[in-house]
Design a protein around this nucleic acid. Structure first.
Lengths: 330, 330
DNA sequence: CTGTTAGCGCTTTCAG
DNA sequence: CTGAAAGCGCTAACAG
């Protein structure tokens, strides 16, 4: 048997469909008796309103489209969990789509959302502002996370600079003199900002120290490779700051395998505070991804609710988490 | 300006809306010239079809509802990634909702999906079959993951038995004679199956060896506690198999702190293959969560496509990952 | 307070 | 091959 529709309910309760709709959406506007009859019919028939039809009629779906890159592990779940928490509380649903590198596919995913969502939350650290502007329909309220700011849309970003500043200060205070940086993938916004922040913080806090930036790609392997290169080129250093935790861990293992003591000889720190970091005692910068997710949803819903669309960038402050990998120097 | 509708396109192309629809959905059925005019109008107006309206009309949304428990880190993302991969390939979208402990909220979340999704994938290891049967609308095609089998719906599950068999065989081959098991929380489906599998595999492969099952709750602490108890009660053993990796790691640390060598004196193994396991060189049983997600979507779509609804349980084979924690015995 | 009716944007017979 | 018109299930004027 097909699912009951509002008409079936109306017939059974011997009222018009309009009354059913009212009884359900604005109970105060119908007589108590009618309401009861409707409610009875609803339970009898196990009626559940057809959300799709409703959205079409009221032209609002109470759904938010979420487009994320193929995020790695922890981030993804934290972010989505935060969004889901906020969305649930606000009565919104999440239509999720992960966007693979290809910008065309991304556009495809967005097109499929037309008419299903009231707004959009997108994270696209690898796309250029122009690409983003082109892909995101201008009429659709949207919030960007950690993305280059396209058509001046409201966006949320991790305050990379502040995080790195704190970390470098911590290293300097502990007597480290030469910090090398293992960078993230080219073109990645966070990677770029972290490298730049490393650059300026080092110059400011460790004047005269040599600046070394090694290429990387956020993988553990890249962290190991960086150490290999440093050793082979006999570059002197007493601290490593990797643009993310995985590379930092790779570097840490590589160092230890070569007989160097962490933190005795070399301090190692990362960025992100993935769960592994805690277990392996890695100093890092922690970003509350779930908070970002929740914030994004909350702001988007506010915008949908009629608030002025904001076009500014909101920076989320990360927190320095000191663990033993940057302990006392020998 | 509001988004263009099919009517705007029709007007601009000087054809009827029916022709626009046809030109877009069944290009072969319209004359080339009309098609071109329509396509031109589409690009001119940046027309994107309204998916909601389309679904209502064709009574199919090409969307799948996904209801997951508040899963921890890695699992969640792997699972969703697998689903998204398959869904993307099949042209489906994912409507995600995480279900908090409360069964009422779960029901709520499901109601909100009525009329927006063609089918459902749900994971609810904590709900009883009766609860599941009550919440999931009987008319909705659905697939359950690692859940008690409610109204005989098709479901996907990890083949705990096979995984444990392989692990016990591996331990036995390496000369371990007495394997103790640290169990997971009471009532948890996986925990129960793993303990039972340990029981039968031990009897079969290590006849005459003593069977020891210690209580646990999947926490690192429980792993440590188990070791304490074993030592205090002077129970002899040369291998530990914990129902998950966290407990195995707890046990491993506790053993080493007591001066015992792993794997020299005692072999330690877990279940899940969390990222930490690799770093700490723990032998474990790996479950490809992304495969499960992808399978779930694929099967659901097949069912939607008219395939007979299946009511059986499909077991996903886990893989034994041997690392140094079960290396040679001294 | 309640019923009738006209849409929301799209698909799909059914004639032409 | 194309257009007119009747829905999909629901809401929202507008009369009564």
């Amino acid at each position: 048997m097909a699912e009951a529709t509002i008409r079936d309910v109306a017939r059974r309760a011997a009222v018009s469909v309009a009354s059913v709709s009212r009884a359900l959406n604005a109970p105060a506007t119908v007589r108590a008796e009618t309401r009861d009859r409707v409610l009875q019919a609803v339970t009898d028939l196990h009626y559940v309103p057809h959300a799709g039809a409703r959205s079409l009629s009221i032209r609002s779906s109470h759904a938010i489209g979420v487009v994320l890159p193929d995020l790695h592990g922890e981030f993804f779940s934290e972010l989505v969990r935060g969004m889901d928490r906020a969305a649930g509380a606000l009565g919104y649903q999440l239509l999720l789509s992960t966007m693979h590198a290809d910008a065309d596919l991304a556009a495809q995913a967005l097109r499929a959302m037309r008419g299903r969502v009231d707004g959009l939350i997108a994270m696209a650290p690898q796309l250029s502002p122009a690409q983003i502007a082109q892909i995101v329909p201008p009429a659709l309220p949207a919030i960007l996370i950690n993305s280059a700011d396209g058509a001046g849309r409201h966006s949320l970003r991790v305050d990379n600079r502040k995080g790195v500043d704190r970390l470098v200060a911590h290293l300097a205070e502990n007597g480290r003199r030469t910090i090398v940086h293992i960078a993230g993938p080219q073109g990645n916004l966070d990677a770029i900002e972290r490298a730049a922040a490393y650059h300026s913080a080092s110059e400011r806090l460790l004047p005269g120290s040599q600046l070394v930036i090694l290429p990387g790609d956020f993988s553990e392997e890249a962290g190991r490779d960086a150490i290999t290169r440093l050793v082979e080129q006999r570059i002197p250093f007493d601290a490593v700051f990797a643009a993310n935790d995985m590379m930092a861990l790779g570097a840490m293992m590589a160092l230890r395998e070569r007989g160097m003591d962490v933190p005795g000889d070399i301090a190692v720190a990362g960025f992100d505070d993935i769960p592994l970091a805690r277990f392996l005692d890695l100093t890092t910068i922690s970003v509350a991804m779930d908070e970002i997710g929740a914030q994004a949803v909350t702001r988007l819903v506010a915008e949908l609710g009629g608030d002025e669309r904001r076009r500014d960038v909101m920076l989320i402050e990360p927190r320095l988490v000191v663990r033993s990998s940057t302990g006392v120097r020998r």
